[in-house]
Design a protein around this nucleic acid. Sequence first.
DNA 1: ATGCCTGTGAGACACAGA
Length: 265
Amino acid sequence: MRLATWNVNSIRARVDRVIDFLERSGTDVLAMQETKCKDEQFPREAFEQAGYEVVTSGFSQWNGVAIASRVGITDVERAFAGQPGWGEDPVTEARALGASCGGVRVWSLYIPNGREIDDPHFDYKLRWLEALRAESARWLTEDPARPVALVGDWNVAPLDTDVWDIDVFAGRTHVTPAEREAFAAFAEAGYTEVSRQHLPAEHTYTYWDYQQLRFPKNQGMRIDFTWASPTLAVRVTDVSIERNERKGKGASDHVPVVLDIAEAA
DNA sequence: ATGCCTGTGAGACACAGA
């Protein structure tokens, strides 16, 4: 099975590119983030015509996650248990969508950006990561053999070499010890970040800002990852970062990360 | 060329992204 994750930065603006990628890449399951539309606005017909079922979670023009699959989609959840909400009267945002596809429990995740270190969104980001860690650890406690993939845009650069110049990020989000500890805690919960395992090269990015020629200069960030449960991690045979998808007119600022997963023994 | 930001809603700019 081929499983990919991609922050598409608006599915309505990008649907032709996304469908084209699905067909070229042989992707069976695609987890999308930042679809930027309500469920009723999602261009599901294009996916269905290409042979994919699609489930979506979008409440407004902000955030939005979706999963497309040609190997089945069942048991859909539009938030994880204990998912923190935003605001004084907390609102659950469209940042987590779970579904079982081809025997794998896939979670499409869009971790809050955090904005600035002194912004309330930063504390929200840390609480959100901790709540996800606690809940996903519980899934493995219940059933250690469960194949689970936590995929998406984590908005954390775990290593200094995951950004082009760490000095540029001094005092900013994505690289703070608190965020990195919250990210690394998924390893303590029993998960393996399989993209690093297969693609250890430094300065290998999944995102390049639209501004200031960041892509031509290769000034990017590595912030899209896959935490795989033990029985799934050992089935991952290859991972690729589809850098070519950042090229040309109408590209998302993120590229797909693709995993090849062997059949269960 | 991989090229100087893009997408949303609104109907001018404000907000968000990272």
